[in-house]
Computed example of a mutant assay.
Amino acid sequence: MASTVNPVTTTPRLGRYTIDTNRSSITFRSRHFFGLLPVKGTFAIRSGTIKVAEPLAESSLRVEVDAASFHTGNGQRDAHVRSAKFLDTGRHPLITFVSDSVDATTVSGTLTVCDVSQPVSLAIVHSEVAAESFTVRATTRVDRHDFGVTASRLMAGKRFDLTLEVTCVHR
């Protein structure tokens, strides 16, 4: 039985975990058309591994996201974002995140998009711990220009608010 816990005082049991991609998601919010219209969408997590260690600072994680899974519900926009003008998913099929440091409230690491790597910190806003799994919700904001994705400067949103809801299962 899962229960909501304070992430500052409770951690999952030690060991290796895999991300259950069927129960995990990445959602985003941005604005387009001169910042007037909201855009919501998703990315699919392809795979991920987490090592929970003692002390917690020695924990690590790696997540791979399918860049071509960009989805907003607008087929024309989605195809445009997947094109060479933006994400160029034919040449750059993966978006990756690898942690550098982990504590009870933050995971910091390197996000790589279109072969450009930048530091990113994820704020852990909620967690649930069960005997053989745990779920974490974390948020961050990224600026697409930091990754060289600069097309349509006025029409497409510059910043993306990302929310990751990830369920991890003990191996």
Rank of each mutant, 00 (worst) to 15 (best):
R141A: 11
R159Y: 12
I45H: 01
K51V: 11
H92Y: 15
G73P: 11
S127T: 15
R77V: 10
F86H: 11
V125P: 00
H126T: 08
D20G: 07
V120P: 05
S59Q: 10
V169H: 06
L122A: 04
P55K: 10
F134I: 00
L56H: 10
S99A: 12
T11I: 09
F33C: 11
L111T: 15
G73K: 12
H92V: 00
R13E: 13
N6D: 15
S24H: 07
S30Y: 03
L87P: 03
H92L: 00
L164F: 14
G75Y: 04
A79L: 07
T42C: 05
P38E: 08
R91C: 06
A67P: 04
V63M: 08
N22L: 12
A57K: 14
F28N: 01
G148Q: 07
S47I: 00
V120A: 03
S59M: 09
T18R: 15
T27F: 01
V102G: 03
V98L: 04
S83Q: 08
R29W: 04
T11P: 00
T167R: 15
T140E: 10
T150I: 13
T10E: 14
L37S: 15
D100E: 14
S83H: 06
N6C: 04
L61K: 05
E128I: 01
T150A: 11
V107M: 02
R31Y: 10
H80L: 13
S121C: 06
G109V: 01
K85M: 10
L111I: 05
T150W: 04
I45G: 00
V8D: 05
T27A: 14
P119A: 08
E54H: 10
V129D: 01
D161Y: 08
F43K: 07
L87S: 06
L14D: 09
V113A: 02
R31T: 13
S108M: 06
T18G: 08
Q76S: 12
T4N: 12
H32V: 02
C114L: 01
L122W: 11
A104P: 03
V63D: 02
G35K: 09
T106Q: 07
R13T: 14
H170F: 04
C114E: 00
P38L: 09
V149D: 05
T21A: 10
K158T: 14
H71A: 12
T27R: 12
R23F: 02
H126W: 08
M155D: 11
T9L: 08
V129N: 05
R23M: 11
V116L: 04
R13Q: 13
A2T: 10
F160P: 05
T18Q: 13
S83C: 07
